[in-house]
């Protein structure tokens, strides 16, 4: 996939995530469009290109967060590796599979981030927020449906879906 498309989508996601998404929070949680895009991109694009794109998406999320710089990038790289491992063994073109992968990846991401952050900040208050992880994952999965359909349409209109049928 051309880099210009990835950068454009990432910038759009950044803009929506930092301005609109906080206003649609439920139970104090907001959906994470970066994770949704990461999953979609990994499941639908050329596996050789995904690593670099995934790294860039993680880095962009890092730029717009107050957390330790590089932490999200590292976790995104780990998650990308995880998806690439299961990628060949699942029916990844089906929407239900994509939503399930989004759910699982969201839980793993939030758990790793939460635990790492509570260690780095030495904050025990953070671990009390562990209940948020499944809620965020459910929210991400719900948001993933329109986002995936939108990205499907975008990819097919740009004739990018044909890249990866292997």
């Amino acid at each position: 996939m051309p880099w210009i498309i990835i950068i454009s989508i990432t910038l759009c996601i950044t803009l929506i995530q930092t301005t609109l998404v906080p206003h649609i929070s439920v139970l104090g949680t907001q959906p994470d469009l970066f994770i949704v895009f990461l999953v979609y991109h990994y499941l639908n694009s050329d596996p050789k290109q995904t690593f670099h794109a995934n790294w860039a998406i993680g880095l962009t999320k890092d730029f717009f967060s107050a957390g330790p710089f590089g932490l999200i990038t590292v976790i995104f790289v780990i998650l990308g590796y995880l998806i690439s491992v299961i990628r060949g063994n699942i029916f990844r073109r089906h929407l239900i599979t994509q939503i399930m992968v989004t759910f699982i990846i969201s839980i793993i991401y939030n758990l790793i981030y939460l635990i790492t952050l509570s260690v780095l900040l030495s904050s025990s208050n953070l671990l009390a927020m562990i209940w948020k992880c499944p809620v965020i994952a459910v929210y991400n999965s719900i948001i993933a449906i329109p986002v995936f359909l939108l990205l499907n349409r975008l990819y097919s209109s740009l004739r990018l879906s044909s890249i990866d049928r292997r």
Partner: peptide, 30 residues
């Protein structure tokens, strides 16, 4: 790929004031 992994991990070692400056400089055009 190895280079990017190394860069990602080394980002964590950047002092907070410098990393904050980098973040805001990159984010400012948006």
């Amino acid at each position: 790929i190895y280079i990017l992994i190394a860069v990602s991990v080394s980002l964590l070692a950047i002092p907070e004031n410098i990393s904050n400056h980098i973040k805001l400089t990159v984010a400012s055009p948006l």
